[in-house]
Lab assay of single mutants.
Amino acid sequence: YKIYPYDSLIVTNSISVKLPKDVDRTRLERHLSPEEFQEVFGMSIEEFDRLALWKRNDLKKKALLF
């Protein structure tokens, strides 16, 4: 996945969300650098992957990456 800054990946309720063209809309968190991922989620990507799907989705919603 290509890395993008968190600010360019957050999704708000506005209709005209302009995400970069090559971003996987269903896995926005994968486009964060490991350092920024840790900062946003408070855990590593590996720890995040071990969580239940509902928990990952809940965290993504709170981080505006859903």
Rank of each mutant, 00 (worst) to 15 (best):
27 R>E: 06
50 R>S: 12
8 S>C: 14
3 I>C: 07
23 V>D: 01
49 D>P: 01
10 I>T: 07
57 N>S: 08
41 F>A: 00
18 K>L: 14
34 P>K: 15
3 I>T: 09
27 R>Q: 12
24 D>N: 07
33 S>W: 03
39 E>N: 13
59 L>Y: 06
43 M>S: 03
43 M>Y: 04
18 K>I: 14
33 S>T: 06
18 K>Q: 15
58 D>Y: 13
14 S>V: 12
4 Y>R: 01
59 L>K: 05
46 E>K: 14
30 R>Y: 06
17 V>N: 15
61 K>V: 10
22 D>L: 04
51 L>P: 00
56 R>I: 05
62 K>A: 12
54 W>P: 12
55 K>D: 11
42 G>A: 11
16 S>H: 12
63 A>L: 06
32 L>S: 00
37 F>T: 02
50 R>L: 14
46 E>Y: 10
42 G>P: 00
65 L>V: 03
4 Y>D: 01
54 W>L: 08
42 G>D: 10
49 D>R: 05
34 P>C: 10
30 R>N: 05
46 E>T: 12
64 L>M: 12
20 P>W: 04
34 P>F: 10
18 K>S: 15
29 E>S: 01
46 E>P: 08
11 V>M: 10
14 S>N: 14
13 N>I: 06
46 E>Q: 11
57 N>T: 10
53 L>T: 12
32 L>P: 00
49 D>N: 09
47 E>W: 07
55 K>H: 11
17 V>T: 14
28 L>H: 01
65 L>G: 02
24 D>G: 02
20 P>G: 05
61 K>C: 09
30 R>F: 03
7 D>N: 14
7 D>Q: 15
41 F>H: 00
38 Q>N: 13
57 N>E: 10
6 Y>R: 02
8 S>R: 14
56 R>Y: 02
56 R>D: 00
40 V>I: 12
60 K>D: 01
8 S>L: 15
31 H>D: 01
22 D>G: 08
15 I>N: 15
24 D>H: 07
53 L>H: 10
52 A>W: 06
14 S>H: 13
38 Q>L: 14
31 H>I: 01
2 K>N: 11
33 S>F: 03
13 N>L: 07
54 W>D: 14
24 D>T: 04
53 L>A: 11
62 K>T: 09
53 L>I: 11
42 G>M: 11
62 K>Q: 10
54 W>M: 08
50 R>E: 13
25 R>P: 15
52 A>Y: 07
46 E>L: 12
34 P>M: 13
35 E>K: 14
2 K>H: 09
2 K>Q: 11
42 G>K: 14
25 R>H: 12
24 D>V: 06
1 Y>T: 09
2 K>T: 13
61 K>Y: 08
22 D>I: 03
60 K>L: 05
57 N>W: 07
16 S>F: 13
59 L>F: 05
25 R>I: 15
62 K>E: 09
52 A>R: 08
64 L>Y: 11
65 L>M: 05
5 P>G: 05
9 L>S: 01
53 L>N: 09
4 Y>I: 06
33 S>P: 03
36 E>D: 12
66 F>T: 07
48 F>K: 00
38 Q>S: 12
52 A>P: 15
26 T>N: 15
63 A>T: 06
35 E>H: 11
15 I>Y: 06
30 R>T: 04
54 W>Y: 12
44 S>I: 09
53 L>G: 09
26 T>L: 12
13 N>Y: 06
39 E>K: 14
40 V>S: 03
5 P>L: 04
65 L>H: 01
5 P>E: 05
3 I>V: 12
64 L>E: 07
25 R>V: 14
12 T>A: 11
32 L>D: 00
64 L>C: 14
37 F>H: 03
48 F>W: 07
6 Y>C: 02
57 N>G: 06
50 R>Q: 14
45 I>T: 07
63 A>P: 00
51 L>A: 04
46 E>S: 12
34 P>L: 11
21 K>L: 14
54 W>F: 09
11 V>K: 06
19 L>P: 07
1 Y>N: 08
14 S>W: 05
35 E>I: 13
3 I>E: 06
36 E>K: 06
31 H>N: 03
45 I>W: 09
22 D>N: 06
61 K>S: 07
11 V>D: 06
64 L>T: 04
64 L>P: 01
59 L>Q: 03
18 K>G: 15
7 D>K: 14
57 N>I: 14
38 Q>V: 12
9 L>E: 00
60 K>W: 01
10 I>F: 04
29 E>Q: 02
34 P>I: 13
29 E>Y: 02
26 T>R: 09
43 M>R: 04
8 S>H: 10
3 I>W: 07
30 R>M: 07
44 S>P: 13
62 K>M: 09
45 I>D: 04
16 S>V: 10
64 L>R: 13
60 K>A: 02
9 L>C: 02
39 E>T: 14
22 D>A: 04
44 S>R: 13
51 L>Y: 06
57 N>Y: 07
5 P>W: 03
23 V>M: 04
44 S>Q: 13
14 S>I: 12
9 L>G: 01
14 S>Q: 13
29 E>P: 01
52 A>E: 14
1 Y>A: 08
57 N>M: 10
30 R>L: 07
26 T>F: 12
28 L>V: 03
28 L>G: 00
35 E>V: 13
54 W>S: 13
52 A>H: 11
58 D>H: 11
60 K>T: 02
12 T>F: 15
38 Q>A: 12
41 F>Q: 00
48 F>D: 00
3 I>M: 06
39 E>V: 13
36 E>S: 08
28 L>R: 05
31 H>W: 03
53 L>P: 10
35 E>R: 11
38 Q>P: 04
26 T>E: 14
26 T>V: 07
50 R>Y: 08
36 E>V: 08
36 E>I: 06
23 V>C: 04
25 R>S: 10
39 E>P: 03
3 I>Y: 09
50 R>T: 13
20 P>H: 04
5 P>I: 03
59 L>A: 05
38 Q>W: 14
42 G>C: 11
37 F>L: 02
48 F>Q: 00
41 F>I: 04
25 R>Q: 13
31 H>K: 01
3 I>G: 02
45 I>K: 07
34 P>R: 14
43 M>F: 05
36 E>W: 03
15 I>L: 14
41 F>C: 01
50 R>G: 12
59 L>W: 03
25 R>F: 08
4 Y>M: 05
8 S>A: 14
15 I>F: 10
53 L>Y: 09
55 K>C: 09
47 E>I: 10
49 D>L: 07
22 D>Q: 04
46 E>F: 11
48 F>R: 00
56 R>H: 03
43 M>E: 01
65 L>T: 00
26 T>D: 15
65 L>P: 01
29 E>D: 03
10 I>S: 04
18 K>R: 11
59 L>N: 02
32 L>W: 01
54 W>V: 09
38 Q>R: 13
48 F>A: 00
22 D>T: 04
38 Q>M: 14
3 I>S: 06
23 V>Q: 02
57 N>F: 07
21 K>Y: 10
40 V>E: 02
7 D>M: 14
10 I>K: 15
19 L>N: 05
20 P>V: 03
26 T>S: 13
16 S>W: 09
